[in-house]
Design a protein around this nucleic acid. Structure first.
Lengths: 139, 139
DNA sequence: GTGTTTGCAAAGTGTTTGCAATTTA
DNA sequence: TAAATTGCAAACACTTTGCAAACAC
């Protein structure tokens, strides 16, 4: 008889974030965090869940993505007016956004250097610096 | 009697771009290009036009903004999932985006340097490199 | 049990589209 | 006059919301 496989990191992540580990959150967290880093939209995650026989509504996927983002487990990447992308890698890095396919990918470390922290307008403070390299299928 | 004031650059811009200088396009072009550079959304431009007694529909504002962008007169800036911004300054520069107010502004030249042109995934080519500094009202 | 979370369907937002009427050259 | 452009209203894609039922502790 097979041993119960050890818990993925998903449960601990939820606990640490103070989020109740509900069936839906756990399942989504596993999809998001168990393997390598992901760049994903709400729709994509939802259909991935359904494919994996995880019953979850699209509304809950949206809620969950925002809760995870607020908890610092995800980073929201704005590259497309009209669609939100979420990145399971919250460390500082830059992105390629393929306008032909809508695919988001990481710029390998060291290829792009941003130097200098700009002085924000008075009364405001810098929250993050985002770099997006827009690409297209070569002509 | 007052002399007819000289044509703004708007008419020439439209001619050069091969766009028929209709009443609506001319009026929008004047709002966009006659004074200093603008960062503006379709809604904003539309209400600005109405305020200036220029009858134009929102649909036409959208069409016009996209035509101007395709013609290289404007640059589209993606900073907010759900809203498109257009910049009348098409030269290379970076932006502050104030998440509290939704205001877009330029990062003064020299404060932020991007070095290195990343190698895009095979089969694709770099179209542009966009840097957005997200800011917030200071706490 | 009690407060949290979920799912549904409806509402909301910004944007695009189809097509008849209007305008431009 | 012929072709391009406009305005309207309906359609659209994505996201959020309200609330009753289900769930976690």
């Amino acid at each position: 008889m097979e041993k119960v496989r050890p818990f993925s990191q998903a449960l601990d992540r939820l606990r640490d974030a103070g989020l109740r580990p509900t069936r839906q959150r756990l399942a989504l967290a596993k999809l998001l965090f168990d393997d390598c880093h992901r760049h994903i939209t709400a729709e994509q995650l939802h259909s991935e869940a359904l494919t994996g026989n995880i019953r979850v509504s699209l509304a809950t996927v949206y809620n969950t993505l925002h809760q995870f983002t607020a908890a610092g487990l995800l980073r929201e990447i704005v590259v497309d007016a009209g669609r939100s992308y979420f990145d399971s890698n919250t460390t500082c890095h830059h992105h390629f956004f393929d306008e032909s396919s809508g695919l988001l990918s990481d710029v390998p470390k060291g290829q792009l250097e941003v130097t200098g922290m700009p002085v924000p307008p008075v009364g405001s403070e810098v929250e993050s610096v985002n770099v997006v390299v827009r690409i297209r299928a070569a002509s």
